[in-house]
Amino acid sequence: MTQYLFSVHHGSEAYDRTPEEMQPSWDATGRFNDKAVAAGVFVFAGGLQPAETATTVDARGEAPIITDGPYLETKEWIGGFWVLDLPDLDTALRWATEASAACGEAVEVRPFHGD
């Protein structure tokens, strides 16, 4: 089994939508999560606050440097993710197809290091 990160990337406009607009995808995402739990493949999932709420800490130097904002200044960032435990990439791509349809965004599939 391999754990895969399913990450959803989007820009700030995704946070401008009204709850009414978002409700169908929240519902679909909820159903997707329930299905993953029932199938025994669900490890973790979550939606993130917008990137402007991020704080970056760099402790590589002598004193930690704390900066407001995300590590990379980009137009799109991770808005949410799943971690699923699956036998292989084909299975992961099938789950990702459903995940993408549910949340209405593209989903990036990336394996975790094994062992």
Binding site: T2, L89, P111
Partner: peptide
């Protein structure tokens, strides 16, 4: 290998 593309 890392993404576990199956031989199937």
């Amino acid at each position: 290998k890392d993404a576990a593309i199956p031989f199937r």
